[in-house]
Computed example of a mutant assay.
Amino acid sequence: MAGELKDNRGRGEAEWRWPSVHPEGRKFGLIALVAALAVLFGLDWEYLGWPMLALTVFVFAFFRDPERVVPQGEHLIVSPADGLVSLITQVPPPPELQGDDGSGRGLGTEPVTRISIFMSVFDVHINRAPVSGTLQRVVYIPGKFLNADLDKASEENERQHMLIERADGVPIGFTQIAGLVARRIIPFVKPGDLLAAGQRIGLIRFGSRVDVYLPAGTDSRVLLGQKVVAGETVLAETGKQGLIEGVSL
């Protein structure tokens, strides 16, 4: 993934810019805009036209695609999603990510730390690769559309599992989960693609969740209730363990 190198010694440039709108969302924004203008100026229904125009702004904002500065480090696992850390728990990986299906070794059957990130309709919904490596597996599973904040959403909702194998052979699994409002998971990548950490890999429309399965012997570096940023927040460092505490103020 090409990009400008920045570091903690001041190299690189920083400037504020309006985030772009992802192409996947432009068609929805334009449809909403045409409908709003038709109602507002064509039918002269101001009481309906102005709310529709506000909805158009929301649609464009929902599909915003800001640039991110991705921390570089072969042992770092960055957040694949913007949102709230809603669950941190020890669970066995999903069956679809456990064994070797011919595409590469899986995560095994022993419990590992799972970090669940809930994305509200106000969060950026572009998902990013948590590590650099080869995308070995993509498994789509149709399902329900329960509230993505619920623990059982990991097993019952529409979801898509992905498995990335790093250059050192360590597999990292994560799952995109559709939510109560989300109705479609859209991938940007396919098995065999070589990914960079923080690279855009897909989106989930209108509220959802992403689960990340950390390798054995690795603890979370984020806390329950913490807000994380896709491609920037470091979720964990492989092989690092230890209790981290925080205080809600």
Rank of each mutant, 00 (worst) to 15 (best):
S103D: 04
G83E: 01
D219W: 07
L180S: 13
F28V: 06
F122Q: 07
A38P: 02
R209H: 00
V247I: 14
Q241H: 03
A216C: 00
K227E: 10
W45G: 09
G73H: 12
L5W: 13
E232F: 02
G83R: 00
E245L: 13
E4C: 11
S79D: 08
D219E: 07
G108Y: 09
L84W: 12
A61S: 13
G102T: 03
F28R: 06
K27S: 09
G102M: 06
R209G: 08
V139E: 03
V91H: 02
F206L: 14
G25T: 01
T56C: 14
L43D: 01
V189A: 14
E24H: 12
G192P: 01
I126K: 06
V70I: 15
P93T: 12
D65I: 08
T238E: 13
M52Q: 06
L76A: 13
L53S: 04
P215D: 09
E74T: 15
V124T: 02
A129D: 00
Q226R: 15
G102P: 01
L180K: 05
D219K: 06
H75R: 10
Y140A: 13
L87S: 15
P80T: 12
G143L: 08
Q226N: 13
I141S: 05
S154C: 09
A148E: 07
L33G: 12
V112F: 09
D211R: 04
P19W: 02
A14E: 12
D101K: 15
A230T: 03
R221E: 07
P51I: 11
G169K: 04
K227D: 03
I31V: 15
R128H: 13
T109S: 05
L163R: 01
P94D: 15
N147H: 10
A2T: 12
F28G: 02
A38N: 14
N8E: 11
F122S: 14
F145N: 03
D151T: 07
V124C: 12
